[in-house]
Write a protein that binds this DNA or RNA. Structure first.
Lengths: 202, 202
DNA sequence: ACCCTTCTGCAGCGATCGATGCAGAAAATG
DNA sequence: CATTTTCTGCATCGATCGCTGCAGAAGGGT
C-alpha cells in the first residue's frame, strides 16, 4: 500500500486548519465558551462560518478540538510533571507549569479548563460537562501518581492520595483564578514555592 | 420629622423586590452572568422585563445588586471569619465557610464571585471587572488581617501577609472550582482540614 | 371628584445568536 | 475535454439577545 495519498480529492482548503484551531483556542481561552461568538471565532480564525462548520462541525465540536489542542499544548506540562521521580518533584513541576501557563506575559490569562465554561446556561451544558470531565481526568492522573508514590515509599504509607490530589488541584485552580484576575506571575510563583516548603502538607 | 412615610406615592409594586433579587442571585450563581438570559432571570423572579428594568436598572445593575446580596448573605462568613481571635481560627473559618457555601446539598454549587464571570466576551467585561474587584477586596481584607496577626505576635514576624493571603484565597477558589464540578462537601472539608494541619504553611 | 406619580402587561424594537442553502470555484479523475 | 468531489463566498434563516414605548391600572395628594 502507499505511504500516503499525495493530495486529497476535491478542492483543497484555503487555510491552515491547525493555525485556525490555534486562533480559536485563544479566543475560547480569553472569552470563555459562551463569551466567544461565532463572529469572534471566525474573525480570529480568518475564515467564514461556512468553512468553520465544514471543517470543525459546530461550535461545541470546535471547542472540544480546541480543548484537545490546549491539553497537548499549553497544558502538556502536566504529563511531563507526572514523570518526575518524586512526588515533591511532581507537585513542584505542576505548580511551575500552572503559573507559567496561566499568568503569561502575552496572551490569555487563566486556565481554559477552568474559565472556559465554569457556570453556563442550559445551551452550553455540553461544554461545561466537557470541562468537568477534563478537570476530573487531571485529578485522577495526579491521584494515581500519588498512589504510586505511596507504593514506592516516596510518600508515607498513611498518606491519602485522593486527598492530596484534591489539595494540589485546588491550589492549581486557585492559581488559575487569580491569574485570570490579573495577579502577576512572580507573586503566584512565590506563593507556590511557599506552599511547597511544607511537603507533604497532610 | 416623621419616622417614615407610610407608603410611597404612586402605584405600589406588585412583588417583593428582595425576594426577586434572591431569585436572580440564584440564577446568576448557577448559570453565570453570560449564561443567565433576561428570560431566565425574569421567569425565576416572577416578574416582567419591564418591572425588572424599572426596579433594578439593567442586567449589569441587577448582577451588581445580586453580588451585594451574595456578599451579605452566602458570603458573609468571610466577615465573621476575620473576627476570629487567631490567624489559624480565621483560616479555619474561611475554609469551613467556603466549603459550606460552595458545596451545598441544595441550590447552586461553586462561588458566584468566581464562576459568575471569570472569562467573558467584550459585552460582559463590566461584570468580569466587578468580580475581579470583589475577589481583590476579599484578598485585601485577609491580607490586612494577617498583617494585624503579625503585629499581635500571632504569626511569626518573618511572615509575608500578602503571600499568605494569596495562599488562603487560592485554596478557597480551588475549593469553589471543585465544588462547581460536583465534588462533594465532605471530601473538600477533609482536604481543607488536612491543609490546616500545617499552619502557617510558609 | 381631579390630577399626579409610579408600576404593570403587551407588544415589539434592532442587533446578534448559532447555523445553512446554494451556486460557483478549485482541485483530482476519466 | 467532461465528471466528480470538496471547499468557499454570499446571503440569509429562525430564534434569541438585551431592552423599550405606550396605554392603562393602582395608589396618594388636594
Amino acid at each position: 500500500m502507499e505511504a500516503r495519498q499525495r493530495r486529497p480529492i476535491g478542492r483543497p482548503r484555503g487555510f491552515d486548519a491547525d493555525e485556525a484551531l490555534e486562533r480559536a483556542l485563544l479566543v475560547f481561552w480569553e472569552q470563555g465558551y459562551e463569551g466567544a461568538s461565532l463572529a469572534n471565532l471566525t474573525d480570529a480564525m480568518g475564515i467564514s462560518t461556512t468553512s468553520m462548520y465544514a471543517t470543525f462541525g459546530n461550535k461545541e465540536e470546535l471547542f472540544r478540538k480546541a480543548l484537545e489542542r490546549y491539553t497537548e499544548g499549553p497544558s502538556a506540562y502536566l504529563g511531563r510533571a507526572l514523570d518526575e521521580p518524586t512526588a515533591l518533584g511532581v507537585v513542584t513541576a505542576i505548580f511551575a507549569g500552572t503559573v507559567r501557563t496561566t499568568a503569561r506575559p502575552t496572551g490569555p490569562n487563566g486556565c481554559l479548563g477552568v474559565q472556559g465554561a465554569l457556570a453556563t446556561g442550559d445551551s452550553s451544558r455540553g461544554a461545561r460537562d466537557l470541562l468537568i470531565a477534563w478537570r476530573d481526568n487531571g485529578f485522577s492522573r495526579i491521584r494515581e501518581r500519588f498512589e504510586r508514590a505511596v507504593d514506592d515509599g516516596d510518600l508515607p504509607p498513611e498518606t491519602n492520595p485522593a486527598l492530596l490530589a484534591r489539595y494540589v488541584t485546588a491550589l492549581a485552580y486557585g492559581i488559575a483564578v487569580q491569574a485570570a484576575g490579573g495577579v502577576g506571575r512572580d507573586e503566584l510563583q512565590d506563593m507556590a514555592d511557599a506552599a511547597l516548603r511544607n511537603w507533604p502538607p497532610c
